[in-house]
Design a protein around this nucleic acid. Structure first.
Lengths: 150, 150
DNA sequence: TTAAGAGAAATTGTGTACAATTTAATTGTA
DNA sequence: TACAATTAAATTGTACACAATTTCTCTTAA
């Protein structure tokens, strides 16, 4: 059966594809809710870091979000232009750009509270399943990070 | 403890973030191997569909890959310019663009055989874990797809 | 038979995403 | 001290990714 050749190259036999597709679809599921806040998904996760930490620099943010300055620089300028954050060079070390929440950015957190629950109600996994998925994803992330070091 | 406010908005308490980060890092892990084939990740998964089906149209490909024509049109033109595929309007219905493998595209499959194993060796999950992860990802994809219909 | 509606792909505009390079600042060391 | 090496962001160039619109084709119903 020639159709059965190279089964390892079939989309359905790969982990990477459902991961790739699932991530895209989950981001897509956020869109209608984030639209109400005038945030994109990437802007939203950047704001989440700031809501938690209040302030950080570009390098730290990049490490947390797995994003580099090529992505972050324009994104942070956008968030600044919306009035949610401030960008200021560090006084001690001018290479470093410190990001901090404005009052308006802080306020936005309250308006964003409905988002996780709204999306959660679209993805009806059991607590057990969610926990397993969470654990496995962080395991893969860990494995890939080790790979870089070796 | 003011730091503990709004725990539902903490990055670490969300499923979406590890999913997003993990998908990006897995695509990143493919890069060194796909570079040898001069393919990007998206081009690679498009080729995987064609290696399996030999031919399809843009709409079908989009449904399988969760991608729309805005992404696929330039990507398929690129694969055509590399000589891996042919793009031809359907004779029966000129709206439809049929994609088919060229001999060169078919040949490329043999060279791509090492890719899944190479990436697999970076992501050392047990067979059990991989199966669970696979199942959960397809479950989420299914839940999100149902959401659209309702 | 033809105009309205539906479909498929292409196009446009915005926003990531990253590799590679550049710029500017700091650090380490001879 | 002085300069090479390092570091942090910004910039540049390429490639997605998708919403909204457009173009062209096909179907359908009056």
């Amino acid at each position: 059966m020639s159709d059965e050749n190279y089964p390892e190259l079939r989309l359905e036999n790969q982990l990477c594809f459902p991961l790739y597709a699932c991530a895209k679809e989950v981001v897509h599921a956020y869109k209608p809710f984030l639209d109400k806040l005038d945030l994109t998904y990437t802007q939203y996760i950047a704001m989440m870091v700031l809501w938690e930490k209040k302030a950080c620099n570009v390098k730290e943010l990049g490490e947390m979000l797995y994003l580099n300055s090529g992505t972050l620089t324009p994104l942070l300028k956008k968030l600044e232009s919306k009035g949610y954050i401030e960008r200021k060079r560090s006084i001690n070390d001018e290479r470093i750009l410190n990001i901090s929440l404005t009052d308006k950015g802080q306020e936005l957190q309250k308006e964003a509270l409905f988002v996780p629950m709204s999306v959660g109600s679209c993805i009806k996994l059991s607590a057990e399943e969610a926990k397993t998925l969470y654990m496995l994803l962080y395991k893969v992330l860990g494995l890939l990070k080790n790979e870089e070091i070796e």
